[in-house]
């Protein structure tokens, strides 16, 4: 798969819970072989979007495909897509190693693969520690280790930096870049803007609706402005600082909620919103 291929495609994706719209008409393609950040405030609909992408929640409207198919219809999906979702817990009573070995069994992988991913994610020393006794950062590494078990083409990571200490954040950044360097697609949701600015190639910003889809470089004017400033400008135009306004005036046209579609015209890459 090349970077011109679409790894994830969302089309008109909408989710309404008891009359409250969590995600509204989200349309975007995400390119393969890139690290894409799905950014938004808490409650912006990031996790809901990922849950719909993975078939864990049914969209009220629209479709979501991964590697060309809905997750539920994707052949060998468990081996091709690695997932770490916020709130995923461990098997009660399991140690780090036994937890990974359970998933190895489910995936039909040799038990030694558990040891390999523990090495990759730096939790080999905690192999015999009960998952319940692991720190939040250790659990994040364990979740990523589980996601990597089947050596997947696509990684979907929901808030993987939550609870990580500075060392962990640095490790995560290097790991994600390394995974993308191997040709994998990484879709990572987060609200930690400064951190993601150093990690992602492409950015999707949402606040219930799509606010931006394109390259980080285009969004920040190749580093002329900070991601944080552009983010607040997009999700909360009323609170835009004068500095950001000035920068916005020099940057490419920013899609507003109602005009998110023109981003497709503005941005040449395949990570685009689609009308």
């Amino acid at each position: 798969m090349t970077t011109n291929d679409t790894a994830v495609s969302l089309s008109g994706l909408t989710k309404t819970y008891k009359g409250v719209t969590a995600v509204d008409d989200l349309t975007v393609d995400i390119r393969a072989g890139r690290v894409t950040g799905l950014l938004g405030r808490n409650g912006a609909g990031k996790t809901t979007t990922l849950r719909m992408l993975l078939g864990l929640a049914a969209p009220t409207a629209g479709t979501a495909t991964i590697l060309g198919r809905p997750y539920a219809e994707l052949p060998d999906a468990a081996h091709r897509v690695g997932v770490s979702m916020d709130g995923m817990g461990g098997v009660p009573g399991a140690t780090v190693r036994s937890e990974l070995r359970i998933w190895c069994t489910v995936l039909g992988l040799p038990a030694t693969r558990a040891d390999e991913v523990m090495e990759i994610t730096g939790i080999a020393d905690a192999a015999t520690r009960p998952v319940k006794g692991c720190s939040t950062g250790m659990r994040q590494r364990l979740a990523l280790a589980a996601a990597l078990l089947a050596d997947p083409e696509v990684l979907v990571l929901d808030e993987p930096a939550n609870g990580l200490d500075p060392d962990g954040i640095r490790w995560l950044r290097d790991t994600l870049r390394s995974l993308a360097g191997e040709g994998r697609t990484v879709l990572v949701s987060s609200h930690q803007l400064a951190e993601l600015e150093q990690t992602v190639d492409d950015v999707v910003i949402m606040q219930r609706t799509l606010r931006y889809a394109g390259t980080l470089a285009d969004l920040t004017g190749h580093g002329a402005t900070r991601l944080e400033d552009r983010f607040f400008e997009l999700v909360d135009p009323a609170a835009t600082s004068p500095a950001a306004e000035n920068l916005a005036a020099t940057a490419p046209t920013t899609p507003t909620p109602s005009t998110a579609a023109p981003a497709a015209v503005r941005t040449p890459e395949r990570i685009t919103s689609r009308a």
Binding site: L54, L56, Y71, A72, A77, A78, V81, V83, M85, G87, M88, G89, G90, V91, P92, W103, V106, L107, A146
Partner: peptide
């Protein structure tokens, strides 16, 4: 307990369906 522990998401995703 899969639901209670949050394991159900991974169980479903790895099960295939």
């Amino acid at each position: 307990r899969d639901y209670g522990s949050g394991t159900m998401v991974r169980s479903v995703l790895l099960a295939g369906s």
